[in-house]
Write a protein that binds this DNA or RNA. Structure first.
Lengths: 143, 143
DNA sequence: TTCTATTTTGTAATAATTACAATTTAGTTT
DNA sequence: AAACTAAATTGTAATTATTACAAAATAGAA
């Protein structure tokens, strides 16, 4: 059940610990780009000794090893994602949902720009998602 | 001296106030993508009655009017910029500097993606800037 | 089984931002 | 020019996300 995550940690010569396995599993099963609080409060139920600081620490070490990535898209908190093939993100300013945007962009290949060494590329799109637009329409029709 | 900023505010039917004029002038003269604290502490010297909350409020209203834009690139604080023609940003993980990146990208035109209404596009590049790379080399040579 | 560096844990601190109520003021009306 | 009012400014007090730190626990090596 956790073999997949054990392997990921082993491949990066990281120690196999419960918090790390649980966090990896959570991110792998929930591609909603959760924040620390969501990860913490969900896992805390199954694993009561879990500490919030451990979630912060674990995510940090997973990030350093490029296993997960953090998104600064919301502006108030970091959101986390299993680091898959390069893709961009859309955040809905109405409901807060963060959605994957799979478009190609010539700049996504981390090309060096003006002598700067680019190690990470993030494309953020902000607006109103399809669902929330539908809700808006409904509200107008009723009013 | 402030005519330019008075005009900007008038064009958006915003009240002409000292904090707004000072903040606009500061952003226009410092394209370093400052955070609230930098804007506040600098302006506080010339304008001692200025409140930090006012800086937050003013930036918020300037942002709503699309006069300035906020960047979530740093992950710990918002950085502000006079909203010029669309461009991207690079942040140096060594020195923290945020630099403009003027590259074209087919996705920058706020095209609707999968039915979502896109109102804002931000391209963030993270890595080590040219200057810091030079410093790194110097340090290795000396060590 | 022992050992040790690493990790986890909990609490306390820090930093950015927001809430809110009182005071002031820009711009309008008289 | 004086009065008026909605909006803006101000200061303080919360709130929220994150980091610092030290003690206890533990993974993996010896």
């Amino acid at each position: 059940m956790y073999e997949k995550y054990v392997k990921i940690l082993k491949d990066h010569t990281l120690k196999i610990t419960s918090p790390r396995l649980e966090i990896l599993k959570y991110l792998d099963e929930h591609h909603t780009h959760p924040n620390v609080e969501e990860i913490y409060s969900t896992l805390k139920k199954k694993y009561p000794s879990l500490s919030r600081t451990t979630v912060y620490n674990s995510l940090e070490i997973l990030k350093k090893n490029r296993i997960v990535q953090s998104l600064t898209i919301s502006g108030s908190e970091l959101r986390y994602d299993i680091d898959e093939r390069l893709h961009h993100h859309f955040i809905c300013t109405h409901c807060g949902a963060i959605l994957d945007i799979s478009i190609s962009c010539p700049n996504m290949d981390k090309t060096i720009q003006g002598g700067h060494r680019v190690e990470e590329v993030q494309g953020y799109f902000k607006g109103v998602c399809k669902k929330c637009q539908t809700k808006e329409k409904g509200m107008n029709n009723n009013g």
